[in-house]
Amino acid sequence: MRRFLDRLYRACGWIAAAFIAAICLLVSAQVLLNSIDRVSTLLTGSAIGLTIPSYADITGFFLAGASFFALAFTLNEGGHIRVSLVVHQVPPRFRRAFEIWAALAGGAAALYFTWYSSVLCYQSYLYGDVSSGMVAVPLWLPQSVMPLGLGVLSIALLDALVTLLKGALPAYAHPAQAIDTDEGALARSVLDGE
């Protein structure tokens, strides 16, 4: 189970990374086409009009994909920002209480968010909503990244909650991930490239 979950988070992280690479590819391709048009204008006096249809819309969809798919992975890597001033000052047994509280509140919010983003996605499907640009993209398709990404985030937070109740610390709360615990944080950022 542990291995499956960790693989799930990691796989979602790489899907998100692929979306970012895809944004870069798509936009670069459009810039290349623009350059060809530019050269054509200089040589023949008229542009060809090479465009990737709806590339701005699609880029936006990919960004949403990257942002939502990466949620759980970023959580586990300690990437989401929190103000840990109080949490790191209190004695260890209170520390656990704080961590349980955070995982509970976060998990509840994530579940709520997952449910309503599913509703949004389902409504788009039901009414056949499409994007308004050159290409009519059925909106439920890009919108499905929200329930998927948030669903995995909810799993990750419940996973953290279970870990905490068992008496251990979740991945994001380990000293190596925790922020502002030691004076050497800056130096560490140099050493290990984080």
């Binding site: 204008t41 023949t44 008229s46 465009t51 249809p53 050159m134 009519a136």
Partner: peptide, 14 residues
Amino acid sequence: LKGLKFRTYNATLE
């Protein structure tokens, strides 16, 4: 208008 770069934002204009 031939060869001018023309702003389009939907299928009709394209």
